[in-house]
Simulated scan of single mutants.
Amino acid sequence: MINRFTLFLVLVFTLSLSQHSAFSQEKTPSHKFWETLKSHCGKAYEGKLVSPESDPRFAGKLVMHVRACEDGRIRIPFFVGDDRSRTWVLTRDEAGLIQLKHDHRHEDGSEDQVTQYGGKATHAGSVTAQFFPADQFTANLLPAAVGNVWWITVDETSFTYNLRRLGTPTLFSVRFDLTQSIDIPAAPWGWQD
Rank of each mutant, 00 (worst) to 15 (best):
Y117H: 00
E156V: 14
D112W: 06
R175D: 06
T14E: 08
A187V: 13
D112F: 03
L49F: 04
P29E: 10
D155E: 02
K101L: 14
T157A: 04
F23M: 15
L49A: 08
L142G: 04
L142C: 11
S39G: 03
T122G: 04
A124H: 11
A121I: 09
M64R: 05
A22R: 14
V154M: 03
E94C: 04
G109T: 00
P29L: 01
P143L: 04
W88K: 08
S21N: 14
D55R: 13
I98G: 00
D82N: 13
G147M: 09
Y45N: 05
A186D: 15
P185R: 03
L37E: 08
T168S: 11
N140D: 07
S158I: 11
A139T: 06
L178Q: 00
Q99M: 11
T28A: 12
Y161S: 12
W189P: 00
L7D: 05
F131A: 10
F5V: 15
E35R: 13
W151I: 03
A145V: 10
E26L: 13
V50N: 06
T87Y: 06
H31F: 07
P77L: 01
V127S: 12
D103F: 14
L171A: 13
R175F: 02
I74F: 08
R84L: 10
G147E: 00
Q116A: 11
R165I: 01
D82K: 12
V174S: 00
I152A: 03
W88M: 02
S24A: 15
P56Q: 04
A186R: 12
R4M: 15
L15Q: 12
G42C: 00
T128P: 07
